[in-house]
């Protein structure tokens, strides 16, 4: 019965993801995205990665999503936006992307089928934060540095891009 959480969370994640890409109202999509992230955190936990699960909740579902919420608030979306979204999501628009995504899904699933059966993972103990931290500040310290560089670059460029926005005005200095 230990599989139950995994199956549950997986189903929730899949359904919520589909809801995200089909919502016309941005806030709804955003909330579904939070659901996807939270359920993915559950999946991570079930896979024996509690550290990743916690980070997913705190950083993704917490920080990054708050960022999204702020932006959606600032965009001041209304009824007209929802109608326009509805208009943009005419059924004909979906045919091509759905075909491509379906093909990708089929190709990847075919690949997965060729993978030999794996050893049972539930017998193994979860990988805790300690071993991850030892790795991060041991052999992978360089990539930690790179990640910090990346974040700094993101910070600087976000600041630069948003520099001249004043309130909800035109943004022109």
């Amino acid at each position: 019965m230990s599989d139950l959480p995994f199956i549950l969370f997986s189903l929730v994640a899949a359904v919520a993801a589909i809801m995200v890409v089909t919502r016309a109202v941005a806030v709804h999509a955003l909330l579904y995205l939070v659901v996807v992230l939270l359920s993915l955190a559950g999946v991570f936990f079930a896979l024996g990665a509690p550290f990743a699960a916690m980070l997913e909740v705190i950083i993704y579902a917490g920080a990054v999503m708050v960022l999204f919420v702020f932006v959606v608030m600032m965009l001041n979306l209304g009824r007209s936006d929802r109608d326009r979204e509805r208009h943009w999501m005419a059924p004909a628009v979906w045919i091509g992307p759905a075909l491509l995504s379906g093909l990708l899904l089929i190709a990847l699933c075919t690949t997965l089928r060729t993978i030999p059966p794996t050893a049972a993972s539930d017998t193994m103990a979860p990988i805790g934060p300690q071993s991850v931290g030892l790795l991060l500040y041991g052999p992978y310290v360089l990539s930690v540095e790179l990640a910090s560089f990346l974040l700094l670059a993101g910070l600087v460029s976000a600041f630069h891009i948003g520099r001249n926005i004043r309130g909800t005005g035109t943004g022109e200095p």
Partner: peptide, 23 residues
């Protein structure tokens, strides 16, 4: 084989990826 096996997790990943690409 357990349902929580990595293979099933990969299946979920594939599905999520395809849905994301669709979006």
């Amino acid at each position: 084989m357990s349902a929580a096996s990595p293979t099933h997790a990969l299946l979920l990943a594939t599905l999520l990826f395809a849905v994301g690409m669709l979006g």
